[in-house]
Design a protein around this nucleic acid. Structure first.
Lengths: 334, 334
DNA sequence: ATGAAAGCGCTAACAG
DNA sequence: CTGTTAGCGCTTTCAT
């Protein structure tokens, strides 16, 4: 659309190389011509064509971010931080949503690769060795978050298992005899990567082992609301341990309509500590996923990988797996 | 990273042109060679370089979306719909956040332009004729949403003024003598585009004129929480008419801690109908911004503009301004 | 039916 | 200090 270096060269009566030197500030060039070129460039509002530059330099200073969905509070928060961190380092981000569609995720990644993104931050629905190979064919640095894809792939997350274990133990210590693990996404375990959920399940079960007198129940599909209602009305006071704040909120809402409120009639805990909780009474007991830290760490890690790949000199792989601390967030629902 | 058409040409013992014909399916080519080339391409997993293609074709099949912030429920919803609609039409979206920073918005737009986005959907913090000229220098179709920038620029939104007028009238009909207009962003009116807020203010005032006995008050800066508290404790029962659900929720939370609840102690209404409201009691009375419709309409409009620009034949500008219907969402807080 | 050649706009190696 | 040349990977006339 705009003016090109060729035009500038013509206008200033110099070669394109000289124009380039003036604009980039590299190489020897006389102050006069430089000054003159820059003035003309400014006057005609020259803007470099980033596609062309990307093509020749092999770098776009863009990082692609592939996540489930932007309506999800958790991802929204993450994207916000990733964007801010990336900007600080002179990168822009290209956000892409896969909506839990495995094929869509692959397509989007291929497209990002074809657009020469310098790196990728990925919360994947895919997993396994084969997928890892696919990712490596893309030829760009990739950091995965939350959902582990395969060993050896850079990965950032909190310690999901430990977090859930601690949270569950907290519930059990309160004296609940019956604990219900709520995790509808597990339903799709065959079709999707449910690594985080499986980890949380493990944590739940580990905690349970230390309380042999407790009885566990599992709601692992999307009928969880109906089943939670039945459980709540069965008389026995139960605690719902949910793998996401959203599920907890939905259960609370449902049971509220039946006149039941925590912690009197039942106990309930969430996961993630999304900011919606600020407005809901009673305050949901949950655990913070430290999303900002995860996001910032992922960006930092990715930047290292990008720089390293650019330098190409050092072959040493830094630590590629970062497990970050979580935080128990006490509430009033248990 | 991967294989190029040059490589393919060499492998198949043909020219790059022929390879191109096979891959693009255009032009005459013998079925045999075509078949052969495609097989090799698949075998080596050829992926076209989209930067290069974009450079030569002048089209990237990307649209840029520039909004305030992805943490905002309203924008999250909008982005989700825009992404889905764009995908349907074979486009990807590139989401960029400006965080209410006018300069940032300009920079991001220039960058998007330099990357040859085919079009832009923009919720701007800038406004005025000068900015419109800036936008036109970018040389790509732009549709603005929510915040009107200047006359003549394609624009999609609900009728903010009418919506607020109707909502306010509803409140006044309930018998409130004192109504408080809450709109902290107005504070930045000099620095930011607050078109939507101004429209809503107008609607509020128009409604007020029909109820001469009512008294109005205005909270137009970020001290609104403290001042709302003072008002609530002044004895007189007031109704807070907020320009965003978030402000309403924050006021409710604040006053709740003072033992005051709507609609008994005060009235309150929001705007946007964000999904957080599903979890908050009592149900906030609000008005739906029809975000999905706005988003879909904006994408449709932009697509038309892109096609039109590509064809270049037709000079007729279609209707460029679309004002969509809103919806009053009754609640329990007024 | 196929190929040669030019060009998108930018950068970089090598001369002078 | 400046210019020439070649090339990134793809598309697109224009010949053959």
């Amino acid at each position: 659309m705009g003016i090109t270096t060729k035009d500038l060269a013509q206008m200033c009566g110099v070669s394109r190389t000289t124009v380039n030197r003036a604009l980039s500030g590299t190489g020897r060039i006389s102050p006069d011509t430089k000054e003159r070129i820059l003035r003309v460039a400014r006057e005609y509002d020259y803007q470099p064509d980033l596609l062309a530059r990307g093509l020749v330099k092999g770098r776009t200073y863009y990082i692609g971010v592939v996540v489930l969905d932007v309506k999800n509070r958790y991802f929204a928060q993450m994207l916000s931080t990733i964007g801010a961190e990336a900007n600080k380092q002179g990168y822009s981000i290209n956000i892409v949503l896969h909506n839990n569609d495995r094929q869509m995720e692959q397509n989007q990644l291929m497209k990002l690769s074809a657009y020469h993104m310098d790196g990728i931050i990925l919360s994947s629905v895919n997993e396994g060795e084969e997928y890892r190979r696919f990712l490596s064919t893309l030829g760009m640095p990739i950091v995965s978050v939350d959902n582990k894809i395969a060993d050896g792939l850079p990965f950032v997350s909190i310690d999901q298992k430990k977090a859930m274990k601690e949270e569950t133990a907290l519930v059990l210590k309160k004296g609940y005899r019956k604990v219900v693990f709520v995790c509808p996404p597990m339903d799709a375990g065959v079709k999707e990567n449910v690594y985080v959920h499986k980890e949380r399940l493990k944590g739940f079960q580990e905690a349970l082992q230390e309380f042999p007198e407790a009885e566990a129940e599992y709601l692992l599909d999307w009928s969880y609301l109906e089943r939670a209602e039945l459980l709540a009305e069965s008389g026995e006071k139960a605690a719902f341990v949910c793998t996401s704040d959203g599920f907890a909120l939905d259960i609370m809402k449902r049971l509220e309509s039946r006149g039941k409120r925590p912690p009197l009639d039942y106990g309930i805990t969430g996961f993630d500590n999304i900011d919606t909780l600020d407005y809901v009474k009673p305050r949901l007991s949950t655990v913070s996923n430290s999303v900002d830290t995860v996001a910032a760490t992922a960006v930092g890690l990715l930047m290292n990988m990008i720089e390293q790949q650019a330098d190409e000199q050092t072959e040493e792989q830094h630590e590629i797996c970062r497990i970050l601390p979580y935080e128990i967030v006490p509430g009033e629902t248990v």
